[in-house]
């Protein structure tokens, strides 16, 4: 089946440990740091590439919003992984950009992709984000595109004979919910998937590069989150206390934890 797979994904600073929030949607020194394709979305991309490889004629698009110069830098690495066509949006970096605005911009960009049949779309993205933890962006993109079959925290996808999908979603306690989806369109917001990062393949990068550079130069501005006002930001307070115990009943451990929390 010639799938049309659109992967939504932003970029994230790498490494993350020095990030501090500052008033506004950005993070302190965010633009100074090297970036990578958001790890959650990256898993979705690897799964999309794998699916496309198994199904000749399938095509992958990556719709990504970030400052154009930074996005370009990141894409020079990502483009070496697998074939795709980039639909870039020149918008704010990760940080705390409002997910509703981001979803609207992504959905609008997807609608502009020439030749895309929304009724046959496989919409992929990250369930979460390394920089935005709202966990709502992909659902909203799907809703805006009229996709009602939505799966969150996806670990695995199996394409069955006849085109139906079997989807494994991650639940609490290490359990998974397995669903059958009769057909497209569908939105899958991926957790970690089960594929490793593909090795770099420079010829793939060079092939992608021929469309990547012109696309980036034409990237449209997407001022997502411009209407938000941030009154205050702070790092979450953390208190860590380690106690090593042996052979203590779970109920006793729970009682001690409750006592510690309520102190």
């Amino acid at each position: 089946m010639s799938y049309q797979i659109v992967v939504c994904g932003g970029i994230a600073p790498d490494p993350l440990q020095t990030l501090e929030p500052v008033p506004g949607p950005a993070l302190k020194n965010e633009m100074m740091l090297p970036h990578v394709f958001d790890p959650w979305a990256a898993h979705a991309l690897y799964e999309a590439g794998h699916l496309a490889k198994l199904n000749p004629g399938a095509k992958v698009w990556v719709v990504s919003m970030a400052p154009k110069a930074k996005l370009q830098q990141v894409m020079m690495t990502v483009a070496q992984k697998l074939p795709f066509e980039l639909v870039p949006l020149d918008g704010p970096p990760g940080g705390f950009t409002d997910s509703a605005d981001v979803a609207e911009a992504l959905a609008a960009a997807i609608r502009t992709i020439a030749g895309l049949d929304l009724s046959r779309l496989l919409l992929f993205g990250g369930w979460e984000s390394a920089t935005r933890g709202a966990g709502t962006t992909m659902q909203r993109v799907g809703a805006l595109l009229g996709i009602t079959e939505q799966f969150l925290a996806v670990d695995q996808l199996e394409v069955r004979d006849g085109g139906s999908l079997r989807v494994w979603e991650r639940l609490e306690g290490g359990r998974q919910q397995v669903s059958l989806c009769s057909g497209l369109p569908a939105m899958l917001a991926w957790a970690t998937g089960h594929l490793p990062e593909p090795p770099n393949h420079p010829p793939t990068g060079m092939a992608n590069g021929r469309l990547l550079m012109p696309a980036l130069q034409k990237a449209k501005p997407a001022p997502a989150g411009a209407g938000c006002t941030f009154l205050d930001v702070s790092l979450p307070k953390q208190i860590r206390q380690t106690v090593i115990v042996k052979d203590k009943p779970a109920a006793e451990i729970a009682r001690e934890i409750v006592e510690w929390i309520t102190q």
Binding site: Q72, Q80, M213
Partner: peptide, 19 residues
């Protein structure tokens, strides 16, 4: 990074990291 971004934005050279 500053210099490289300007080169990339020119569209006349490709810089491939991790290569």
């Amino acid at each position: 990074q500053w210099a490289g971004q300007q080169v990339l934005m020119s569209g006349l050279a490709q810089i491939w990291p991790s290569a």
